[in-house]
Design a binder for these strands. Structure first.
Length: 511
DNA sequence: TGGACGTCGCATTAAG
DNA sequence: CTTAATGCGA
DNA sequence: GTCCA
């Protein structure tokens, strides 16, 4: 594959993008030799979907607007479509509300797979525009990779995600994203309406099929070289005859027809849109669509007023959080906590810790070296922190979190909140976890993910007759606790489980 | 070929 | 009202 | 849908 972008450092202004948009752009960038980075100051070029300088000034430091190259994201699509680094100048963000940049194809006029007309990226992005799927052009997929990486025997790929290295974006990323569409479809009961799967027989099958797709994608994620043939694919663990067939279609046509069809399904798109709300899963979203005839988020908010707050702030919550902002949020909370009770330490977990350039939410695990399992102060401190946020008008909503319950009895406390930083209005989802010091690093492992990685840690632990949970490691036989040294940090947890160390950035076993 | 597929706590809803 | 079942997220 | 007993 030609390295089109030549290690160019690229920053994307997250405004007007959804998390899946960012994921897609990020994959395309990386696969074509670009480097997505976390901070606009260090970028060679900055991509945006904002069409006017005025809008731009609200989203980016004004000094950067003049000192950096800021272009419309269509530049990237066109570079990839033409397999060349195109002149950026025609794509510069135009002065306000003058018409689109008039741009003639700098090179061959032939195939113009630039997927979207410029007008589709306009300034008004309402929930109904939400597209959970990316639209990838065939030309992009057909761009081939050299199989020059050190090749491995596919069947030797470890069967557990916790024993493999899974990068954030892999060489077969576009194939995986294609398969993932099918997984999502299965997870939502294919095309069954709610009533027909209330008899749980068919529904359960679909869920199991979805799981099978998850595992196949997870294995592919850790596979080091570009898949070039079906025979190569079908010896990879968790890829059987059916998925091999899909891969075959992808290899010969550059896409999977089923996936492309699903991307255009109005019903599936609505159902996935509803699921962007916390507390709405596959069951509820189908109820909203099929029974209450909801088609927009506003419909959903009317059907269930408790979701109204989230709908109000939907576009904020959907806007990906650039990496460099995440520690600022953690520092704010940590500073407030320090005033309530000094000596706390914390680790930012979740996708941030796994190295993602943009996050949907922020997960932070807190502890105090003096906080042990039996002390009841942690709950009080957490409540005080929440009260403090309320006083500062930083707290917008509590999505989940209670001071009662058995988790609380074990000294583990959590609050999932919606908040904003002082003097800012932007809403951010933050999961705050308080752990006793004895299980701090176990918690950090548990909250770092990814989902598949966690799932296979548990499976691996079971094989050793152990139980891995966020509140500690114990023996399956008698339930007795395994002590893990906190001084040795996270590696001690892996050691206790007999696992090779895997860097957090290599734990991206989900798509 | 048939059973397993991670696991648990919180929250909401259905049942008693 | 209390308790059981289910959905949901991590 | 795939693996394994």
């Amino acid at each position: 594959m030609p390295n089109i972008l030549g290690y160019l450092k690229i920053y994307i202004i997250p405004t007007k993008y959804s998390p899946s948009d960012i994921r897609q752009l990020s994959a395309e960038l990386t696969i074509h030799g670009g480097q997505l980075i976390d901070h606009p100051e260090r970028a060679d070029i900055i991509l945006t979907r904002l069409m006017g300088r005025k809008r731009l000034a609200l989203a980016l430091d004004p000094t950067l607007i003049d000192s950096k190259i800021v272009v419309l994201d269509r530049w990237l699509a066109d570079c990839i479509a033409h397999e060349a680094l195109l002149d950026h100048r025609p794509y510069l963000v135009p002065p306000d509300h003058s018409s689109q940049p008039t741009h003639k194809w700098p090179r061959k006029q032939t195939a113009s797979p630039s997927t979207r007309p410029p007008n589709q990226h306009n300034n008004t992005r309402s929930p109904s525009d939400h597209n959970p799927f990316k639209t990838t052009s065939p030309a992009l997929i057909l761009a081939s990779f050299p199989a020059t990486e050190k090749s491995i025997e596919p069947s030797t790929l470890p069967r557990l995600a916790c024993c493999r290295k899974s990068p954030s974006i892999c060489i077969n990323q576009l194939l995986i994203e294609e398969l993932d569409v099918i997984r999502v479809w299965k997870e939502n009961g294919e095309d069954d309406t709610l009533e027909s799967d209330l008899n749980q027989a068919g529904k359960k099958d679909d869920e199991k099929h979805a799981l099978a797709y998850s595992r196949a994608c997870s294995a592919l994620k850790a596979y080091p070289t570009k898949i070039c043939s079906v025979s190569e694919a079908q010896v990879i663990p968790f890829i059987g005859p059916k998925i091999a067939l899909q891969i075959g279609e992808y290899l010969s046509t550059g896409q999977i027809k089923l996936s492309q069809t699903l991307r255009t399904s109005v019903r599936l798109r609505s159902i996935l849109l509803f699921q962007t709300l916390h507390g709405v899963g596959s069951r509820l979203s189908r109820e909203f669509y099929d029974i209450h005839d909801c088609r927009t988020l506003e419909d959903v908010a009317n059907a269930r007023p408790s979701l109204k707050v989230q709908v109000t702030y939907w576009s904020d919550l959907q806007t990906p959080i650039p990496r460099y902002e995440v520690p600022l949020i953690a520092k704010f909370l940590s500073d407030e906590l320090e005033m309530i009770s000094p000596g706390c330490i914390h680790t930012i977990c979740g996708s941030y810790r796994r190295g993602r350039e943009y996050s949907n939410d922020v997960d932070i695990v807190f502890t105090y070296p003096a906080m042990n399992r039996s002390s009841k102060v942690s709950s009080q401190v957490l409540d005080q922190l929440v009260d403090r946020l309320r006083t500062l008008s930083a707290l917008t909503d509590i999505l989940s979190g209670s001071s009662i319950g058995s988790n609380a009895l074990r000294g583990l406390h959590q609050r999932f909140i919606m908040m904003s930083l002082p003097r800012q209005t932007r809403q951010i989802r933050v999961d705050i976890i308080f752990a006793p010091y004895e299980i701090y690093w176990v918690c950090v492992v548990g909250w770092t993910g990814s989902t598949m990685f966690e799932r296979d840690i548990r499976k691996h632990a079971n094989g050793l007759n152990l139980k891995f949970a966020s509140h500690g490691i114990s023996r399956l036989s008698d339930g007795s606790e395994i002590a893990v040294s906190q001084e040795k940090g996270e590696p001690a947890v892996f050691e206790a489980l007999g696992l090779e160390w895997i860097e957090p950035t290599e734990r991206n076993a989900d798509v």
